[in-house]
Amino acid sequence: MKKVLIFIVFGLLVSTNLWAQDETAPQPQVKDKPVRFAWESGMLIDNQTSYIPTVKTLELVIQHKFGDISNGHSDLWGIYAPSNNIRLGLNYVVANNVQVGWGISKKNMYNDFNAKWTILEQTRNNTIPVFVTLYGNLALDGSSDETFGTVYKFSDRISYFSQLIVGRKVTEWFSVQGAVSFAHANSTPAEHDHDRIGLHVNGRIKVRPQGSIICTYDAPLKIDKISEQRPEWDNHPKPGLTFGYEVSTSTHAFQIFMGNSTGLVPQDNLMNNFNKIDKDNFAIGFTITRLWSF
């Protein structure tokens, strides 16, 4: 599995160079500008995109995942279920293509401090054929001390997540990105790994000037060489599949979706999603972003 992972990451990097070599040299006097409208928001459901607003922009993020739909109309397909999750976040763009943020979630009362840097932007004449973005966060689990066992240390609350995103606006209506991520939690339940590597594929199909079909797929990898568990252990985190619809305006992006993961902090989704991709495990959710420029 490790070889497969190395092959995928290496393939992403090599393919970037291959695309670049296919292009004719740009006119030296004309600056090749970044492509327009690759993504409408910095978030795609519960994943990050390469989009970062202009400098000195404040972004409010409201994320919500309701309970699963298995109870049908008795709890209005999960909307009235108690097992929901909410995250409120604030992001601020401190420099060109650099964003820092903070958020707090209902589940485990995670406080997450995050940063995102879009290193490369895809350009209109393919001088740079892809977006390349780094994202990372550090989260503090706000659960009670007893949750972490009899010998509690503050460091038990810490988990972190880092991600390399490579994306491309393929056509005027289709954008896609792939990502590889690494998550670590200092404290986990028994028979859970402390480290997890994941692969992600996210896409957007624009069907109207302000409307798009959106989709994310998150795959936690089972890599025996970094697993602390015995080979017979079979309770590994499950992949997450989410699809929805996005409407965007000048200052808002509104995404409504259905998916099988309950987390809103990425390491929680990667390490603690044990819901299979099954009809009854799907839950309705939404993500709203609101921008203010200063």
Binding site: K33, R36, P53, T54, V55, K56, S250, T251, L291, S293
Partner: peptide, 8 residues
């Protein structure tokens, strides 16, 4: 700030 590019 919302449309930073002069061409746009």
């Amino acid at each position: 700030s919302k449309i930073p590019d002069d061409e746009d």
